[in-house]
């Protein structure tokens, strides 16, 4: 990275009031303010958003795909966490 390169930022957009901010992509900018301005130009040219979060990509910690089995497998074996696991007698409603 040469001296004048700008850091990478991840961009999150809230598309409308009541919804989560969602990751939409990344861009480069000298600082957070510029990252927000660039995100406005790049990711919301057609009213795709009403709020923007940016975070420097360096600050994102990600799980390792090679740990996928040990991380997520246990939740797959616990079927009793889902309502469909239970038998409800005929005639019962609102449950």
């Amino acid at each position: 990275m040469s001296k004048n390169d700008w850091p990478l930022w991840e961009v999150f957009i809230r598309s409308k009031q009541g919804l989560n901010h969602k990751h939409v992509g990344s861009l480069r900018a000298a600082d957070a303010e510029m990252a927000i301005e660039n995100a406005r130009d790049v990711y919301t040219r057609r009213s795709e958003g009403i709020s923007i979060w940016v975070i420097e990509s360096n600050n994102v910690y990600a799980s390792d795909p090679s740990d996928m089995d040990s991380l997520f497998e246990p939740s797959q074996t616990k079927v009793y966490r889902h309502p469909t696991f239970y038998v409800v007698p005929d005639g019962i409603s609102h449950m």
């Binding site: 001296k3 004048n4 390169d5 700008w6 000298a30 600082d31 510029m34």
Partner: peptide, 16 residues
């Protein structure tokens, strides 16, 4: 555009 990128970095530094 080199000077623009340099100026933006200098400004970001200063603000920090």
């Amino acid at each position: 555009g080199e000077w623009v990128r340099a100026a933006a970095n200098a400004f970001a530094e200063k603000r920090k």
